Simulated scan of single mutants.
Amino acid sequence: MAEPLKVAYSPCPNDTFVFHAWAHGLVPGADAPEVLFADIDLTNGIAERGELDLLKISYGQLPWVLEEYALLPCGGALGRGCGPLVLTREPDADLTGGTVAVPSERSTAYLLFRLWAAKAVPGGFGKIVVMPFHEIMPAVRDGRVDAGLVIHEARFTYGRYGLHNLADMGEAWERETGLPIPLGAIVARRSLGAGRLEELADTLRASVRAAWDAPEASRAYVLEHAQEMDPAVADQHIGLYVNAFTEDLGAEGYAAVETLLTRAAAEGLVPPVDPGALRF
């Protein structure tokens, strides 16, 4: 009997919602994989080391792993109105020379932040520090950093920390490009072969559709891994990040990814990427 496929994704509600059916052997014809839960910064590193078969990573990490991993056209996170936020204690804070906490320097959030900051903070920052996602809002609140770049459910909860939304990276991106925001990508080993990659894409699509068809079926799994998240916030999270682009990137989704990586490469933030390498 073949060993199960080894996959990794985050415990965030959108990922557990998307993968629930597959992870529980509920997709006809597809064996349940062996699952590792890891936050995006960890999966980015795992992909760079080439350690697992299929992972959810940031689009900001993609240029470093495309030689070994292929981008699957489904299962990931793109969307509108769901961009990272820059949070501060004061509503009109000047970040020139300041310290900004970010969850990763290999993330879409960081790329969008740097593209925004090139225009919005021409004087530059004093320091960028990487810290775990859950520590960022308390660090801003307590004055240990001047601002924090946050993602996911933080857009629903930052008010609890008395913080202000200085800028929405997604709004800036959509205003300039008209495209959705590419956040999280699903990648799989190229060595699996094109046929197997197509099978995995079909399995992921089936898992997404199963989640939509019976959302209550995944609820216990989602909340089990949601790190004490309020169920209402988990529902908002899923509604925001699981959408038509999760089922299939399509022409607009690929255009968004290409635009992000092209702009980031022009700023020296990532290595150049041949658009053809984004399709297998």
Rank of each mutant, 00 (worst) to 15 (best):
P4W: 11
K6W: 14
V7C: 08
A8P: 01
D15M: 14
T16I: 01
F17H: 15
F17G: 14
A21P: 12
L26W: 01
V27Q: 05
D31K: 11
D41I: 14
L42I: 12
L42N: 13
T43S: 03
E48N: 12
R49V: 15
S58C: 05
L62P: 00
P63R: 13
W64R: 15
E67H: 00
E68V: 09
A70Q: 11
L72G: 14
C74P: 02
L78W: 11
C82M: 12
P84L: 07
P91G: 07
P91W: 06
T99R: 06
T99S: 04
T99N: 01
E105T: 00
S107R: 08
T108G: 02
F113Q: 06
R114P: 01
W116M: 08
P122T: 07
H134Q: 08
P138D: 07
V145H: 06
A147L: 02
I151C: 11
I151Q: 03
H152M: 08
A154E: 00
T157N: 03
Y158S: 05
R160I: 12
Y161M: 01
G162T: 05
G162D: 03
D168R: 01
M169S: 14
E171L: 11
E176S: 14
G178N: 09
P182W: 06
P182D: 09
G184R: 12
A188I: 00
R189D: 08
G193H: 11
A194C: 14
L204T: 07
A211H: 06
P215D: 02
A217D: 02
S218Y: 09
A220P: 06
V222H: 01
L223R: 00
L223M: 02
A226P: 04
Q227T: 00
D230R: 13
D235L: 12
G239W: 13
L240C: 06
L240D: 09
A251T: 14
E252R: 01
L260C: 08
T262D: 15
E267K: 06
E267G: 02
L269D: 12
P272G: 09
G276S: 05
L278V: 12
R279L: 04
